[in-house]
Design a protein around this nucleic acid. Structure first.
Lengths: 243, 243
DNA sequence: CGGCTTATTGACGCTTATCAAAGCAGGTGG
DNA sequence: CCACCTGCTTTGATAAGCGTCAATAAGCCG
């Protein structure tokens, strides 16, 4: 049996892309609140606010960010289909960062109060949550390393490789091309670089035939060269280890 | 309390296999495997390695970091008493960063394989784990914002405030003084600044009577002024007691 | 005492931010 | 259909923050 409305929902199975069967369906029917469609530009979560909902991204892309009092903005990460939004906020009681939809998005929504039920009755699902949380934490550690240690050119290369590989793994690629519906300002804010410098770096990479990002599409010319620039070690896709 | 010997210990310190008889923390009844004492300088976890253990810090301090191929090092965070080490690695199967003891430390050690049992039988404890994970993720988001958006002076002020408040909350303070057994190089590596620039910034803050860090002790002269420099809003989440 | 690690300070220059302005597309209204 | 606006990208010029190099000083230890 397949639950078709949540085709990318990581919560529906230990393995994010395996359809549900039997009891899992019952569980999802009890936990799932509903589906939600939002337009590009919508703010899904606001930093500092109460966060009564959790979301799984079915389609579309978004951006997670924090803002300083004086307006400076740090993009914490880009949100792609399959990502989970609001776990941190639900557990801590208050959202620590904002989330904006950058394209139209479809979301799977849950109630925060159901989270405890999940832990009581579905330890395997709870374990999955911890796994997702660990993956996110791991990414943040990498990002921190990038901002702290890599040069501007290395940062841009790193970000392009990371985004390309995530999108490819989701099957959203068309050969060497993936959709990338963000602005240069967004990338700059995610890398701690100025817009101008980010633009010049992107132009340079384009001039060298390494990567081209126009009209919301990223085309990778030489992935290995980019990985070299970013000092990125070889890193296989990690299968989901249970126990 | 019965303290089990730490078996199959992967640690490198010559004293790694010495069990302790402490009674301070009995976190997670039935889950605890043993207590462990390590010397300053010991590497508790190595990036990329298998991580069969989880630790709770009873006393002492450490450092979590990642290294790039060419030797550049990013300090992800400082580890204080009460912190949890290895959850991420246990769940993901491989440690994403290394952990060094910067002072002698006493640790509470668990087996990775007991994690699943915890989820099955102690959902409340499992929920605590997610909470700790969320707090860590929240901190990483703040750190990322600091490296991405704050100037050198702002970064140093931010770090000093953060460390002072964490240590104070643990009751390790003596008025405006807290122990801070790290080197300037460690702080520099955590903030993405050079050692030289970090030193000059610290000297400047000292000259202004805002903070003095000598001989492993940090004394805060004017906490509010430091918070202003760091553009830090009022204190956020409250630490929640484990157990 | 010599060797080691860490803190400190000055000089210099590169990377990157900032300022400024122009091009370009899409949308709107006259 | 064209003028005009707005948001995004692109480019050049200039300056500053911060990294790098180099050297001294101070403590610790065998």
């Amino acid at each position: 049996m397949i639950v078709d409305r949540c085709e990318n929902c990581p919560l529906k199975s230990k393995n994010a892309f395996v359809p549900l069967t039997g009891t899992e369906v019952d569980f999802m029917n009890g936990f799932k609140k509903g589906e939600l469609a939002v337009e590009a530009g919508t703010t899904l979560v606001t930093e500092g606010s109460d966060a009564p909902h959790l979301y799984t991204v079915l389609s579309g892309m978004g951006m997670r960010y924090k803002t300083l009092e004086d307006g400076r903005r740090q993009v914490i990460g880009f949100i792609l289909p399959g990502d989970f939004i609001g776990l941190q906020a639900s557990v801590m009681g208050e959202a620590q960062n904002s989330v904006d939809a950058k394209t139209d998005m479809r979301l799977c929504a849950f109630q925060r109060r159901d989270l405890w039920t999940l832990f009581e009755r579905h330890p395997d699902r709870a374990y999955d949550l911890v796994w997702m949380s660990a993956v996110e934490e791991s990414f943040l550690g990498e990002a921190l390393t990038t901002l702290g240690q890599r040069s501007g050119r290395e940062r841009v290369a790193w970000a392009l490789v990371k985004l390309f590989e995530r999108l490819s793994a989701l099957g959203l690629d068309d050969g060497e091309r993936v959709p990338l519906p963000f602005r240069q300002q967004d990338l700059a804010d995610s890398l701690g670089l100025s817009l101008v410098h980010t633009n010049k770096t992107l132009r340079a990479l384009h001039g060298e035939g390494l990567a081209t990002w126009v009209d919301g599409e990223l085309e990778i010319g030489d992935l290995d060269a980019l990985r070299d620039i970013a000092l990125l070690a070889e890193e296989g896709f990690q299968p989901r280890p249970l126990i």
